[in-house]
């Protein structure tokens, strides 16, 4: 039986005003169901590009991405929208909440796209907010919430559609350490209690302790894959290089 996520020889080449930029250069790895995978690497190593490709926001120039035995790179735009709506959930560094809507309405958004009836989606959105500890902030607008709370609303939005894969791109990048910790605790709970597969992209090396496995990217390639117990070696290697 194949892995839940299979990334095979993925290349992403951009043409930036005539300059060829290779964001990914043959990245390959697998992710098992229920795994909490960290992806670390310096800026420009291709972490976010990789996440966008796995999440169906972007297409690889070459290579193959298979999620739950479906080749993502072969899906049409319409199918990719469905994939983003039903299979994956995104959490971004900038939260990306829509300011004019309340926390509850922001969380309802993926269900609106899916055509879920109003009452049901409201119930599910409230459940998702309660799951991230914000049941009492449902009717607040983003500007009435702290950064940590906004990110937890974004997590609630990502999980409200019961996705199979959660993709987090620098989710603590804009948060203070306390808020970052509370957000990471939510990820941990989702992974441990609900068995949600998570891929976390970060350059914050302190977060690797939440992960079952860590991929180190450099120059668009998978430099090395670390298992629990090998993180000290990775940290000393990476910090040593700095």
């Amino acid at each position: 039986m194949s892995s839940f996520v299979v990334v095979r020889d993925v290349w992403k080449i951009y043409d930036m005003d005539g300059v060829r930029v290779e964001a990914l250069r043959g990245a390959s790895f697998d992710v098992e169901k229920g795994e909490f995978l960290g992806v670390v690497g310096p800026s420009g190593s291709g972490k976010s590009t990789l996440l966008h490709i796995i999440g169906g926001l972007d297409k690889p120039t070459k290579g193959e991405v298979v999620v739950e035995e479906v080749k993502i790179n072969e899906l049409s735009d319409e199918e990719l929208s469905d994939y983003r709506n039903k299979i994956v959930g995104f959490v971004f560094q900038m939260f990306y909440l829509i300011p004019r809507f309340t926390a509850l309405q922001n969380v309802e958004m993926p269900l609106i796209a899916r055509g879920v009836p109003r009452e049901e989606r409201r119930k599910r959105a409230l459940e998702a907010l309660e799951m991230v500890g914000l049941g009492d902030r449902a009717f607040h607008k983003p500007n009435q919430l702290s950064g940590g709370e906004q990110q937890r609303v974004a997590i609630a939005r990502a999980i409200v559609g019961k996705p199979k894969l959660l993709l987090a791109d620098e989710p603590t990048g804009n948060l203070d350490s306390e808020s970052a910790k509370s957000v990471m605790e939510v990820f941990k709970k989702l992974n441990r209690e609900y068995g949600l597969t998570i891929i976390l992209v970060t350059h914050n090396l302190e977060l690797v302790w939440y992960c079952n496995r860590v991929i180190r990217l450099a120059d668009g390639r998978v430099k090395k894959i670390y298992k629990i117990g090998e993180y000290e070696e990775m940290l000393s290697s990476m910090l040593g290089r700095r």
Partner: peptide, 16 residues
């Protein structure tokens, strides 16, 4: 523009 990106990221189709 960014809001459109958000909507697309969470599954809104181009037609939507």
């Amino acid at each position: 523009t960014r809001e459109i990106g958000i909507l697309k990221a969470i599954g809104f189709k181009s037609r939507d």
